[in-house]
Amino acid sequence: MTEPAEPQRITPLRETLTEPQTELPRVTTGGEWGRYLRVFLTFARNSLIRDMTFRADFIFHCISSIAWTAMNVGFYLIIFRFTSMIGEDTGWGQDEFFLFLATVWFINSLVQAFFMPNANEFSELIRTGGLDFALLKPIDTQFLISFRRIEWSALSNFAVGLLIAGISLHSLATREEAAFYPSPLSLLLYGFFVACGVAIMYSVMICLAATSVWLGRNQSLYDFWFYITNFSRYPMEIYNTPLGRPLLGLFTFVVPVLVVVNVPARILARPLDPRADWELPLAVWACVATFGCVMFSRWLFRHSLKSYRSASS
């Protein structure tokens, strides 16, 4: 009787493997942080290698984002031809407002460089089932999908922000009326609250990305992100009208995108002392809101993974 299916003859491989290896060494808690840092650096490195293989694209992205900045600056320069301030008695004159704009640019460029490409890719990973691989890795899934890609070209906006901030600070320090330099403490606080702002924006983005697990295609959710964050791009005083106050409350306390730019920009644009009596509570609230947003987004993200169905093929 012959064999059922002809067995495939397999030519033996000459080489032999070394003895089966023992388990991987355990990673200690101290080493855990180091491992995450190393993974992050490898992501950064790989993204840079990738960007450099498409150098023309990279340069082009830089140019177009600088053009976009120029248009915005142009727009506000036009507006300041007609007015001395954004809003009556708000203190957002041209120099102060351009510091505000620079802050918008810092935060946006950081979000765009570190999180935007990843959030965009996340819904793609859901759609194609590529999230499978992220779930297999022995590392926090949220960390993995949040930092996979870094868009270095978006940091060109950070540089442009520095330029705008530099010019405005110089102008503030040399103007005739009420000239001042920000103190080291203001700068320190500024850096801290910019970081808080980035964390809040990141949380909003993760929440929206998490919903794409339930909703599938979610182009309008990203539009939604732009529209929501659009509220954060202007001084909060402009909403201080009878009709605007509900919005002011909503975007300060429920979806706290208004504190993202306003708190740091306000710290830098004026001397630290004197301050209106509501500014300190607002800054404290910004810290609380940052913590709350990060925790909520993490909870929502984990929850959404439970509903992940993994598209086949």
């Binding site: 991987l24 060494p25 990673v27 080493g31 491992r35 190393r38 993974v39 490898t42 992501f43 490195r45 790989n46 290698i49 990738r50 293989t53 498409f54 194609t128 089932g129 590529g130 499978d132 691989f133 890795k137 022995p138 590392i139 993995l144 093929s313």
Partner: peptide, 22 residues
């Protein structure tokens, strides 16, 4: 499905795996 970075040499993805798996 593939998990390697499409635009990069495989060795870069491997290095990433090395870091992730410790």
């Amino acid at each position: 499905k593939n998990q390697l970075w499409w635009d990069l040499p495989a060795q870069e993805s491997y290095r990433l795996h090395q870091q992730i798996y410790g």
